[in-house]
Amino acid sequence: MSISLATPGVDDLGAIVAVLASWQVPEAPVQLHPGDVGWFWSRGPEATAAALRVWSSRDGILAVGLLDGPDLLRVGLRPDHQRDPALAEQVVADAADPGHGVLPEGGVAVETPSGALAHDLLGEQGWGEDEPWAVLRRGLDRPVEDPGMPVETVDTSTAGDWAQVHRAAFGGRLGMAEMRSRWEALAAGTPFREARGLLLRSDRGEPAATIIVWAAGAGRVGVIEPMGVHPDHRGQGYGRAVTLAGAAALRDLGAAAAVVATTAANTGAVATYTSAGFERLPDRRDRCRR
């Protein structure tokens, strides 16, 4: 089987998002999601297309990689090709050789779904394992508990409040104006058609917590990317409440389950998700070349 590698154009993004969505079936391992591409879309469609790598054969798209930064490749694989030797060997060869236009020389990392053959082959080539990531999942076959707080859907009128919480929760150098522009960009992206941004406020009306949830179609798995609580309002139940609101939104969008990943060292986030009914799956580790 001949497998080719390509960097897509903006006109290809809709088809790639649709393919990734079709791979988010409940029985498949947690992997690169349309929501991950949707979150990256805050940088614009041109930057998103430039950050994607697509492996295809005559059978269609077999793998999609997102360069989530210059030194991290996040790979999603068609569920029935997770252990395909030809595909794994091609992805590994392209990721390992800087001349193939995927990852640069030096220290880099590759994320693959748990159990993927590509992960094993990178290990055989001397790649180590990076810090563990906690992967959590909640089934949505039953109604979600009421969060106990009023929930707002983020739109253009409240994008500034979302930006305020996100900037305070995660830090970074971006100013408020640029954060709001990034919201507008991701909200205009194709993946956001099956997404919701939600906001909780304090009793005094201050923006306290936000979450964005991304569905992938009815009966498929949705993802949280990201959830944040303003530092001034932590320890008051806003994280659990906004996570419950996000899970309920995904259920309304037809998702069969909700998943989220965070570094295992982030014990506060893990505790928040488990308090909202998420169950911890086996940790996942990226392969890294030091």
Rank of each mutant, 00 (worst) to 15 (best):
W162Y: 15
W162Q: 07
R167K: 12
A169P: 05
A169D: 04
G171V: 08
G172P: 05
R173F: 06
R173S: 11
S181G: 11
G189A: 15
T190W: 00
P191F: 00
R193E: 02
L200I: 07
S202K: 09
S202G: 03
D203T: 14
D203H: 11
D203R: 15
R204C: 04
R204G: 10
G205Y: 12
G205D: 04
E206Q: 07
E206G: 02
E206D: 14
P207T: 05
P207R: 08
P207E: 04
A208S: 15
T210K: 06
I211D: 10
V213L: 01
W214Y: 14
G217K: 01
A218R: 07
G222P: 09
I224L: 13
I224K: 02
E225M: 01
M227T: 12
G228D: 14
V229A: 12
P231L: 00
H233G: 02
R234D: 08
Q236M: 05
G237H: 12
G237L: 11
G239F: 03
R240Y: 14
A241E: 06
T243P: 04
G246A: 07
G246C: 05
A247R: 03
A249V: 11
L250H: 01
L250P: 00
D252C: 09
G254F: 04
G254E: 05
G254Y: 04
G254S: 05
A257L: 03
A258F: 01
V260H: 09
V260S: 12
A261L: 06
T263H: 10
A264L: 14
A265W: 03
N266K: 10
A271D: 10
T272V: 13
T272L: 02
Y273S: 10
T274A: 13
S275W: 00
S275C: 01
G277P: 10
G277T: 09
G277M: 09
F278E: 10
F278I: 10
R280A: 10
P282Q: 06
P282S: 06
D283G: 02
R284H: 08
R284C: 00
D286W: 15
